[in-house]
């Protein structure tokens, strides 16, 4: 295929994606979608955002974090404090949530980024647990009982839906651009062989820092929007390891190290979770079993399987 055709194909793809985005956006404004459908799509969009970010870290940069719930909790509490204590607009709360998340990430990055391999996973998890323990003892945020998130007037489902859609599109766009840049090439080199990448002049520290902060930024935004929808936050829900369990599931099932993987994974996750709600107590067991089977027998996930199939 010559370069001209490749470029054409790229333009066509971009047009298709823009069209999908605009259709979703307009149907949100137009009131075409039922509230129930919007609720599903709202979840799918946010999980795509979370999944893409975890994938950016684990699938592309080889940084398997088990502590992304730290940023979700920080952002959720930021929204709660801004809207309930200071009575400010919830968009302002989301913004504060993102700032707090990124600042927290910058602080953690200094400590954690040079820890390699599985110890990074544990360190990120412990950091999130430590934050959760700290919030359980902090009087200002209601200790273990947590806080209500009171927003008046409460945003309509369509408003949250559009917010989630824009967030999802932005995270996909940023991931795409980041992977196309020098940073992205450096990242995959890093994941495949960290010493070789370093000896070829890849600035590992800088790349890791960029990825970690980008992931924290979008994860915080998604967490803030999630908790506006939930309306209440307490330490065990904000800093819950289940947030990371869902990200792991989405990326593993969909296909780690591919852009389309988390999109496929999120759709499956949200639909499967709704379906499994009929069997109380079984959902995590079944999700866990599926993840293990996929790791063992389909290591590239559904996206990898489809790619092979097309060849």
């Amino acid at each position: 295929m010559d370069i001209g055709m490749k470029k054409n194909k790229g333009v066509i793809k971009l047009c298709v994606y823009t069209a999908i985005f605009l259709i979703c956006l307009l149907s949100g404004f137009g009131g075409v979608l039922s509230n129930n459908l919007m609720r599903y799509l709202f979840k799918i969009f946010l999980y795509i955002t979370l999944g893409e970010m975890w994938n950016l870290m684990s699938g592309f940069a080889g940084m398997t974090s088990l502590g992304q719930q730290a940023f979700i909790g920080l952002a959720g509490y930021s929204v709660a404090v801004m809207t309930t204590v200071y009575k400010l607009n919830f968009y302002f709360g989301i913004g504060v949530g993102a700032v707090v998340g990124v600042l927290g990430a910058a602080l953690l990055a200094v400590l954690l980024l040079h820890i390699g391999g599985m110890y990074f996973s544990i360190a990120t998890w412990v950091a999130a647990e430590a934050l959760g323990t700290f919030f359980s003892g902090w009087k200002y945020v209601g200790q273990g009982a947590g806080m209500n998130i009171t927003i008046s007037p409460y945003p309509k489902m369509s408003e949250l839906y559009i917010l989630a859609l824009i967030l999802c599109a932005a995270s996909l766009g940023v991931t795409y651009l980041l992977l196309r840049s020098d940073t992205g090439l450096g990242l995959t080199a890093m994941r495949d062989d960290i010493s070789a990448a370093a000896s070829l002049g890849v600035n590992i520290e800088k790349n890791k820092f960029i990825v970690y902060l980008t992931a924290a930024f979008f994860t915080s935004l998604a967490g803030a929007v999630f908790f506006i929808n939930k309306g209440t936050i307490y330490p065990d829900s904000g800093f819950d390891i289940s947030w990371t369990i869902s990200m792991v599931f989405i990326v593993i099932i969909g296909g780690a190290g591919t852009m389309e993987g988390p999109v496929i994974g999120s759709v499956i996750y949200v639909l499967l979770y709704e379906y499994l709600a009929h069997f109380p107590g079984w959902s995590n067991i079944i999700l866990g079993l599926i993840s293990i089977l996929v790791i063992l027998f389909m290591p590239k996930g559904i996206a990898g399987f489809l790619r092979n199939f097309r060849k």
Partner: peptide, 15 residues
């Protein structure tokens, strides 16, 4: 992969 499998086992055992 091994780390994530033990993670899956922990979720399954817990629930």
């Amino acid at each position: 992969a091994a780390l994530l499998v033990t993670f899956g086992v922990s979720v399954i055992l817990k629930d």
